[in-house]
Every structure is written in C-alpha cells, then in structure tokens.
C-alpha cells in the first residue's frame, strides 16, 4: 500500500537523475504534493515561486519553450483554477509542461476550497492538453514517464489516497487505452483514480452477497481515448456505472457518454459523482457522505437494477 502522491514524488526524483532537462516549479506546496524529493535532490533545477500559481504557470511555459521539461505541481483546485493562464501561456504556445494537480476529490478535513472537483472537466476541454489519472503507484510511475517523454502539454491528476497495487511490475501503460481490471459479461463499473478501488470492493460485495457480476474498468487515459477499445468493450455491455470523485458534469462519465453517443451504442450509463463542493471530514466519512464508498456504490447498483426490473 502506497499513496499515489508518494509514488509520483519518488518517480519524479528517479527520473531527475536520468533526464537533466526535467525542471521543477513549485508554489509553496512541495511537501504536500511530494515534489520535495526532487527539490532536495536537484536544487539547481528547482524553482520555488511562492504562492503565485499564475506566475508559476508562465515560468513553466517559458522553460518548456526553452527545451526543458517543466513539472509544476500544486493542489488541483489552485492550479487548474488558473484557466486563462494555462490556456494562453501553456496550451496556446503548445509548451510541453507537465501539470500535476493533487488533492482531488476526498482530501479530508481541509474542506471544500482545497478539494479539486472540476479539474478533469476543465482540462478535458483545454486544447492540446492530454489528461491522465492513475489509480495505483505503478500506473503513476508509468504515466509520469510517458508525460516526461512526449512533446506536448499534459495534466496528471494525482490523489493523496493510499491504495493497493493492481498492476504488476512489467505493466506498460498505453495512452488512450481503458484497462479491464475485472472481466464481465454485460455490466460494469467505469472509473479512474482512487475510486477504481471502491469499485473493485463494491463489485466484490455484489458478487459475494448478491451473486451479481459487475466488471471494473480503469480509465487512466481520460484524453486522448482509444475509441476503438471503447467500442470493443461496450458493444456487448448493457449497463455501465461511471464513478468519479469529481463533479458529474464534464468528468469521465461525460467522456464515456460522448463516445457511446458518437457510435450509437445503446449501453445505459449511470453517472455517479459529485453535485456540490466537498466538505470537511475524514476521507472515509466523506466517501460515505457523498455516496461513493463501496457500500453506497453496491446499494446504488442494487437499487438501479431493481428499479429497472420493476419499471
């Protein structure tokens, strides 16, 4: 068990040894976003700008245009809140910056202002950006490596949750591909980031207690998406429950619906996500409050299936 942000921080520092073009820009949140390991190891390639995200974004853009590979990490709520700066300085100039947005979803007692709940929606619509969200430490390292290699702006949503590993050490991340974690016949969960683990647990509950088979799909490559893989997976899928610790509008549920609609697939989609800001509490309490813990998810599935039978 390891947190996704720890996996990010450790990998970034490892990559720093290999690739001298990697530079870090931080805005007084190095320890919280785990970029402090790189900062301590490579002080000459690290730039702390203070609590000034807009300036940080512009500096990163300029370094990216100078053939460096800038990594800028901060809370996603603060970083992705700077829409016009990301849009003009990074995206419009196609500067190959890696933006790391941490503290999405259920972050704990710090409450609503610190929790990123719109970042996927905003960054999906950002021209030229690729958008990723890893669910496990190995996937985190894979995705970071990928973003450091490509010559294009990227956004990675990194959660602070401690999670078990789902992939083996030889796993190789392929941009665009959804990953089937648990096989299924005609119903599945579709999720990304730490919520994938809640889906796995909900699936277990449904199987063990109700003999219902629901598969789980991990969706780390939010943009771009390999549409052929989506068609292949969903052509025989009757019902999908999309699960995200993010506003329902514009998140992964929306992304999936756009493709299903484009190819006239008649899979029924239930989008499970947030409708409002996330308050203070422990992450476990918050998952329950906002109905995204394993029991709430399995209850939602049971109720939905029941309603469908009797409707």
């Amino acid at each position: 068990m390891k947190s996704i942000r720890d996996a990010f921080g450790e990998r970034l520092a490892e990559q720093g040894k290999i690739n001298e073009k990697i530079v870090l820009i931080s805005a007084d949140l190095k320890v919280a976003t785990k970029s402090n390991i790189f900062y301590e190891n490579f002080p000459n390639r690290s730039f702390e700008v203070g609590i000034a995200e807009a300036n940080a974004i512009g500096i990163a853009a300029g370094l990216g245009l100078s053939k460096y590979k800038p990594v800028l990490s901060s809370f996603s709520a603060f970083l992705i809140g700077k829409n016009v700066e990301i849009r003009t300085s990074i995206a419009y100039n196609n500067s190959p910056v890696v933006l790391i947005g941490t503290h999405g979803g259920f972050i704990g007692p710090d409450g609503a202002t610190q929790s990123g709940i719109q970042d996927i929606s905003i960054m999906r619509s950002m021209p030229r950006f690729k958008v990723f969200q890893p669910s496990t430490p190995i996937l985190t390292a894979n995705i970071l490596d990928h973003c450091l290699e490509i010559d294009q702006p990227t956004y990675i949503r990194i959660s602070r949750n401690v999670v078990p590993e789902l992939y083996d050490e030889n796993f190789f991340f392929v941009e665009g591909d959804p990953i089937i974690i648990q096989e299924f016949k005609d119903m599945c969960f579709f999720s990304s980031g730490p919520m994938v683990h809640n889906c796995c647990k909900a699936s277990e509950i449904l199987k063990n207690n109700h003999n219902i088979n629901l598969g789980v799909i991990d969706f780390p490559s939010i943009k771009p998406i390999n549409e052929n893989k989506i068609i292949e997976i969903f052509k025989n899928t009757k019902i999908v429950f999309t699960v995200e610790d993010h506003m329902k509008e514009g998140g992964i549920g929306s992304a999936l619906c756009e493709i299903l609609s484009k190819y006239n697939l008649d899979t029924k989609v239930y989008i499970i996500g947030l409708n409002d800001f996330v308050s203070s509490g422990t992450p476990e309490e918050l998952e329950k409050k906002y109905m995204l813990d394993p029991n709430s998810l399995s209850d939602f599935v049971l109720k939905t299936l029941n309603d469908r039978i009797f409707s």
């Binding site: 530079v23 730039f47 807009a54 300036n55 940080a56 974004i57 512009g58 500096i59 990163a60 853009a61 300029g62 370094l63 990216g64 245009l65 100078s66 053939k67 460096y68 800038p70 016009v84 700066e85 849009r87 003009t88 300085s89 419009y92 100039n93």
Partner: peptide, 17 residues
C-alpha cells in the same frame, strides 16, 4: 500572448533556461 499579464512570467522561464 493575448490574455494580458502573462508575458513577463514566460520571460522568466526563458531567462532561467
């Protein structure tokens, strides 16, 4: 450029490089 206020920050990136 075009959305105002951002050019000096990009200049810093170039200058640091």
């Amino acid at each position: 450029t075009g959305a105002l206020g951002q050019g000096i920050s990009i200049a810093i990136g170039y200058a640091l490089a």
